[in-house]
Design a binder for these strands. Structure first.
Lengths: 263, 263
DNA sequence: TCGAGTAATACTCGGAGTGAGAAAAACTCG
DNA sequence: CGAGTTTTTCTCACTCCGAGTATTACTCGA
């Protein structure tokens, strides 16, 4: 930020009031479908419409505000930092929110996006393993998971925010180990493949996926164990893996069908 | 944005005042070096320190605010939209700012990042062909281009903002035709390679680069012309190209030396 | 208990893309 | 003119990919 000379001594409080909020695009996978957390709006404007959870920023960092909003709406209590964290081994006292990956998505501040006043909203993207339906918390009563393809006609510019979040999520699956943020601490290659299938909305060749995941250094590491049972519809007991220490996937797992890349 | 029930009728103007600003990381290439536009701060805090250009958001979109700040600091006048635009053919009346590519980088809002009050700053990233030294405009007198490796100890959290901007720029060169935003409307493959060299800070194999650029559909298209003269230090007259219509490069031009990818 | 169906895993094959190096040709400058 | 430089094109070996096939180990229902 810079004050030009003519702004010297300028008091920004004299500006028309600007409110800063955070909105959260929280994604999870339930029953093999990619879902987003929405709340039902009770008040005007957009009363009765669904919206992304969010609220005003208090005396806290933007990251903290996003995590707080997510905690309030899901009824879960934040345990640790906003970065995902492996409690490899037994389940410690950490909240389920400890495993949530949170990152800033973008900021939406067009005049008029909220009819009441100028509101600048910082959107966040959250990735979580399958979380319980948020009914517990008092505040969370109005929040629920909705499959992303049914999340339309949202309040404000939230259709756009959600679309941007989905595109970000799909892209990040290609070159980061983000998919493991959707699984439990231990998972099978098949479960990992289902994450990609749900987010990308495309079937993947099981054999090639298997080969590629295991060939990327640091993506997954074997636990040496297998599941206790085979799949529900048959098949051998798959091996179990946990997330490795890679931050970027190399080589990347690129999405198929990329003819639509040129303008 | 969502108002929880207990916020019904809440007036956000009762919150401690929050100011919203835009900061611009404007990059260009001068003499083969990647440079960023900085201003010298005259007032406290951080008087005498260098900072990214920026200022308060007015009644305008965030994108417009960023373009306005950039125009004010460079002394150039904005002509068209914020998106880059090809005036293929003759030079029309458009400003040099028409060819600037502008995109949102991220938002920085830690309490205390500005000692005076709570300031939430939306950072933008701008890419421009070599622009004149900004001396013309009244307001721009304090702004100048600085090689990025000499841009240290900036005011506020601008070291971090600049670092984030550089990483974004380096990454986008890999999978988008962004490099053409640093060149003139017509350019040679060698000039394009120098853009990559300057931004990535690494030498590239000329033969392989040539092959890859021409093999990516829609990256560049031939004008059928060559330059009037060969290079200053010799070599044949290179062919001229202009930007194609691709929005994403496929296959991508990946950076070399990727051992440092894992945590 | 058997047989059908399914999933995990491991192959093979041909094609595309890549880094490194070589080389021919075209041009500048001294 | 000659040395040095750049553009442009090849070659070669290697990696990676998509598609297909095969094997094996399961579950479940008849």
């Amino acid at each position: 930020m810079d004050e030009a000379s003519f702004l010297e001594g300028y008091d920004p409080r004299k500006y028309p009031a600007v409110a800063v909020t955070v909105d959260v695009v929280a994604l999870t996978i339930r029953d093999g479908r990619l879902c987003v957390l929405l709340v039902e709006r009770g008040a005007q404007p957009f009363a009765g419409r669904r919206a992304l959870p969010g609220g005003f920023v208090r005396e806290e960092t933007l990251d903290q505000a996003a995590l707080r909003e997510l905690a309030e709406e899901t009824g879960l209590t934040p345990g640790g930092s906003s970065a995902e964290e492996d409690t490899a081994g037994g389940h410690e006292a950490g909240s389920e929110l400890d495993r949530v990956h949170l990152e800033q998505l973008g900021t939406y501040g067009d005049p008029g996006r909220d009819p009441r006043m100028r509101v600048v909203s910082v959107a966040y993207l959250a990735f979580a393993p399958s979380l319980p339906e948020p009914t517990a918390g008092s505040d969370a009563a109005r929040a629920y998971w909705v499959p992303v393809d049914e999340a339309k006609d949202l309040a404000f510019d939230h259709d756009q925010v959600l679309a941007d979040g989905l595109e970000r999520a799909r892209a990040k699956l290609e070159y980061t180990p983000l998919a493991t943020a959707f699984t439990g601490p231990e998972f099978t290659i098949g479960e990992l493949r289902q994450v990609y299938t749900a987010v990308w909305g495309e079937e993947l060749h099981a054999g090639n996926f298997h080969r590629k995941v295991l060939s990327v250094p640091g993506f997954v590491e074997s636990t040496g164990e297998t599941t206790a049972r085979g799949g529900e519809r048959g098949g051998p007991k798959p091996k179990l893996y946990r997330a490795g220490d890679a931050r970027l996937l190399h080589p990347a797992l690129l999405r198929p069908t990329r003819e639509d890349r040129v303008r």
